[in-house]
Design a protein around this nucleic acid. Structure first.
Lengths: 198, 198
DNA sequence: AAGGAATTCAAACACGTGTTTGAGATATGA
DNA sequence: TCATATCTCAAACACGTGTTTGAATTCCTT
């Protein structure tokens, strides 16, 4: 499953092939049928395991009443970028699997949305709500959350284009905060801009 | 080439297969070898033709000195969204091909970046520059352009996730301006936020 | 230690893919 | 009209894929 996760994250579901996974894992091809039923079963198992462990070990920071929503937003953005752009020790491919599902959804996307992305998004909405203040309507709040997510996700999905533009997204954890700070400023102004006008 | 464009846009380079394209076009499989050399040759020809015609018929609105940068930004955002989300009459799949190249780059991405995306982005930078005013540094200007592009592109790349969040991106031209207006407000505040702080 | 279940293995299977073939049809120009 | 170049066609080829097989091996319980 480690080998499968690595290869699925690197190549995607279609492009990663069972023979290579099994070679990397040092097991026979028939093992996947026996243990997971099929390639898709293996993929599903990998994704589930990866995001479960990921949620346990790197919980999204909880936004409590009284916290500064601006720093909460920066934390959230920083973590989203890190998850997708940087290979972490514990779950090196969790973010990449999510990112891949966004690009080319398979049957597991629904599960991923429900268990990983929605909770994350929900937390984000609470931060946005605090920033919106009086202008806080559910619809607007949701849209702002989408925009923030979009700003982060694009730096992974659009990586190749950004490289060619001269703005390669950071690949090391140390370089993430700089970009996160910029995105945060941008998003912060964007959100409180709505608050100002109502 | 029409059939190929339609299928490549709908399924992507890998998933679209030559037999289906030829069946849809009513020609023999061997025709692609004779006329384009290979499947990749056909793809390249389709992409090139599609974006050339697209640039001629739907040029990106030019930002002149004296124009209101705020409305120019809205126009630009509206057009980007329309290109990717809505099938147009003249070049129904040009935007989708670009979007597909972002998701899973092939060898044509470079050409697409150089001939389509860079000019578009360059125009966007000029608008951003006008908005930034005094705070206008090349680097910051570029980042802001990236953010705007990201906000638009995400609504196509992340379509499936957005649907599941309850925010399906518009598919008809008539529904685009509403989203464009929202993104514009957000981006506008974000950009002038930088201008305020320097 | 013996029996039986669980697991592993190399090999083959079925299918889809892009590509190639070589003969036939069609258009072109003298 | 005829010869040549251009194009079309159905069929087959070569290869990669996920899956299946049935025997061999390992593991656990009795």
């Amino acid at each position: 499953m480690d080998a499968a996760g690595r290869l699925f994250a690197a190549k995607g579901f279609e492009e990663a092939n069972v023979r290579e996974i099994c070679r990397a894992a040092g097991v026979n091809i028939a093992a996947v049928r026996h243990h997971f039923g099929s390639k898709e079963g293996l993929y599903r198992a990998v994704v589930v395991r990866s995001h479960k462990g990921f949620l346990e070990q790197e919980p999204f920071p909880k936004f409590e009443a009284g916290d500064d929503p601006a720093v909460a937003l920066e934390r959230a953005i920083e973590q989203m970028l890190r998850i997708m752009l940087v290979r972490r020790g514990a779950h090196p491919y969790a973010g990449q699997l999510i990112s891949r599902e966004l690009r080319s959804p398979t049957a597991v996307l629904d599960e991923l949305v429900e268990n990983v992305m929605k909770p994350l998004r929900c937390e984000l909405e609470r931060i946005v709500a605090a920033l919106l203040g009086g202008a806080n309507s559910p619809r607007l709040r949701g849209q702002c959350a989408n925009f923030v997510i979009g700003l982060c996700v694009f730096h992974d999905l659009g990586k190749e284009a950004l490289k060619r533009f001269g703005y390669p997204p950071p690949e090391r954890a140390a370089d993430v905060p700089k970009l996160a700070g910029l995105i945060t400023k941008f998003a912060l102004s964007g959100i409180v801009g709505f608050a100002a006008r109502g």
